[in-house]
């Protein structure tokens, strides 16, 4: 369980990233965070693996306040929290396998990892993760030879290799075309249901949020302005979150031809 208790975050330059955020995310939930650009979506999910550190409040993961964590605990936390990025963040010159196995770094001693001495089970796990996102045949290819959608699937496999309890995805489909976007979201959703991994995704397409989320959190100017199950959300809810009329560009479309 993830609990934000009165969390605020002020960046060093004075920007208020988060403001009095109080939310609770239950194990296994698929939460989609929506909001306009600059609303604080990235700041919210980056707080969970402490890529940014809130300046006020308590952030509890399984009853432990992660804001007190120092280097060692922090790395342990991060091994259990997988992250997926808009730009895939693969090491482009390295092979797919090397990228995926890097999900085990937190579990592996420094020397072993630097000399590529992974236990057989880890290699097997990495390979199975690739199979789960249907890209195992690219195992030995260099990652920059893959298409965007394929790279994002490799990134999902990397996260699966971490065997995380939580997956954070910061706009995972913003650089992809509609059919590929749906494919990637479908994999995320599948992993969430099969492994019971709490999944928090930032999106800015409302139709996509509606299609994949269990629950929607709306943000505006660092504050949570909406929080409810997807069944209670309608167009008016988004207009409230965005503070404006819904436009065409807020939809990705194409869920049918995916």
């Amino acid at each position: 369980m993830i609990e934000f208790k009165d969390i605020s975050l002020v960046y060093p330059n004075g920007t208020q990233g988060l403001k009095n955020v109080n939310i609770q995310i239950n194990p296994g939930e698929f939460v989609v965070v929506v909001g306009l650009s600059g609303a604080g979506k990235s700041t919210l999910i980056r707080s969970i693996n402490r890529l940014v550190t809130p300046t006020h409040g308590e952030l509890l993961i399984d009853q432990e306040n992660i804001l007190n964590y120092r280097a060692r605990d922090l790395r342990k936390l991060r091994t259990k929290v997988g992250m997926i990025f808009q730009n895939y963040n693969l090491v482009k010159r390295s092979s797919v396998m090397k990228n995926v196995i890097s999900g085990r770094l937190g579990y592996t001693g420094t020397l072993r990892s630097l000399f590529n001495l992974y236990p057989k089970e880890d290699m097997a796990l990495a390979y199975r993760s690739l199979e789960r996102v249907n890209i195992s045949e690219k195992l030995y290819q260099r990652s920059d030879q893959l298409s965007g959608g394929q790279q994002q699937r490799v990134a999902i496999a990397r996260v699966l290799t971490q065997q995380p309890n939580i997956i954070l995805a910061d706009e995972p489909v913003a650089s992809l075309d509609p059919p590929t976007s749906h494919q990637v979201m479908t994999y995320l959703r599948k992993v969430n249901k099969e492994d019971h991994i709490t999944t928090i995704v930032n999106l800015h397409f409302i139709d996509m949020a509606m299609e994949y989320a269990d629950r929607i959190i709306g943000m505006r100017a660092g504050e949570v302005v909406y929080d409810g199950p997807v069944s209670e959300v309608c167009e008016a809810t988004f207009e409230e979150i965005y503070g404006r009329k819904i436009r065409d560009e807020d939809r990705v479309g194409g869920s049918d031809d995916a």
């Binding site: 693996n49 992250m83 990025f85």
Partner: peptide, 8 residues
């Protein structure tokens, strides 16, 4: 960032 985020 990705390697840091995965606990490296």
């Amino acid at each position: 960032e990705a390697i840091r985020a995965s606990g490296g």
